[in-house]
Design a protein around this nucleic acid. Structure first.
Length: 363
DNA sequence: TATTCGTGGGA
DNA sequence: TTCCCAAGAAT
């Protein structure tokens, strides 16, 4: 009853495949800042940043991050707010908080040395199956699979694997394939070459098969079905959320900002005070003024709506109606509220949606 | 297992 | 415009 999904593993010339793949990588690999040496810390940071994020986007963030936090020791002793600020604009901010937490654990529990075994490295926050394999193979030469989206796309074509790569369970199929194929002489280059091939040649929509170093090993190429793979089900449409936000200034031109909750969307980042609008209650302006008083202890004079910010996340969209106003009184001193000047505001990490508000309505 | 977690770029 | 995507992990 068990269908043999990896039928083409029996016929592929594994030795020749590895050789063709790695020889290509040696010639064509891009010069990337985290490839300058095999520092496990640099590889670790790069792999976290690269999760669901393009190489071109990561490069400047990685360089700045390494300048600011050059070693595990430095990062372990940094304030979380500084780490989030360095991550500002990169997205998926729990990556930064998990990395910071895990680096602290490595510093304390392993004397600052990144673990070189699957059990320990996998126990670190933010290190899942892919990242564990990437670090172990690239930093320590251990033949562990590092299966990301590239690897699933490439191998789905080479081995004609028709599992839905959108399903979490499919990753195991590809890990099994990698365990059969991986070069034990150079697992680092093998893993990186599969990803590099996916990024440069074996691309999602129009693979450059004529430039592919392993096309003679590729079942999909021989069948002419490379455009039909991988199989991937579509994702759902985003949920729409409406917000009303207030850019409030006190008599000296400073503005009120609020630190978001420590869990959930944009956790621990800062924002302008805002509320989600549920229709069809009072007008949003009245709701906003009311919440500012009850939840924030802020007495305000609100003007008319001055603009709209639209922002798209992967799973929802925000439409923010922006109100300007005057802060006349702030009753309590709360740690998640601050009144800051235009110079001080640059210290705080904001999501891109609120950076837009700073640029358009504050500075 | 399915959903939640960002952002910017390209088809 | 709309959709998908890009070196995934946590829950």
């Amino acid at each position: 009853m068990t269908k043999n999904k990896l039928k083409n593993l029996e016929t592929i010339d594994k030795q020749a495949f590895c050789q063709d793949l790695i020889n290509w990588f040696v010639e064509e690999m891009r010069n990337l800042p985290w490839r300058e040496d095999q520092d496990p810390y640099k590889i670790w940071v790069s792999e976290i940043m690269l999760q669901q994020t393009r190489v071109d986007t990561v490069i400047p963030y990685f360089n700045r991050f390494m300048e600011q936090f050059p070693t595990i020791e430095v990062l372990a002793e940094a304030e979380e707010e500084k780490v989030l600020k360095a991550w500002e604009g990169l997205g998926y901010y729990s990556r930064a908080r998990n990395l910071h937490s895990a680096v602290k654990e490595v510093q304390e529990k392993y004397e600052g040395r990144v673990p070189d075994n699957l059990k320990e490295i996998s126990s670190l926050k933010g290190v899942g199956p892919y990242t564990a394999g990437a670090i172990l193979s690239q930093a320590y030469g251990i033949p562990e699979p590092a299966v990301d989206g590239n690897v699933m796309r490439v191998l789905s074509r080479i081995l004609l694997i028709e599992d839905d790569i959108a399903k979490a369970s499919s990753r195991k199929v590809f890990e099994k394939a990698v365990r059969e194929l991986i070069s034990h002489e150079n697992p680092s280059y093998f893993n990186q070459a599969l990803m590099e091939l996916g990024a440069i040649v074996c691309t999602p929509t129009s693979p450059s098969c004529l430039l592919c170093p392993v096309r003679e090993h590729c079942a999909a190429f021989h069948e002419g079905v490379q455009h039909e793979l991988p199989i991937k089900t579509k994702n759902k449409k985003q949920r729409e959320v409406h917000l009303a936000a207030a850019v409030l200034k006190d008599e000296s031109g400073r503005t009120l900002i609020h630190k978001r909750a420590e869990k959930g969307l944009l956790a621990n980042l800062w924002e302008f005070p805002n509320i989600e609008i549920h229709l069809p209650f009072k007008t949003e302006k009245v709701q906003l003024k009311e919440i500012l008083k009850t939840e924030y202890g802020a007495e305000v004079e609100l003007g008319e709506m001055v603009g709209t910010i639209d922002h798209v996340f992967s799973h929802l969209t925000w439409t923010i109606h922006v109100y300007e106003g005057t802060l006349t009184e702030l009753k309590e001193e709360k740690t998640d509220l601050k009144i800051v000047s235009s110079e001080q505001i640059d210290i705080y990490p904001f999501p891109v949606s609120h950076q837009k508000m700073i640029n358009q309505f504050y500075k």
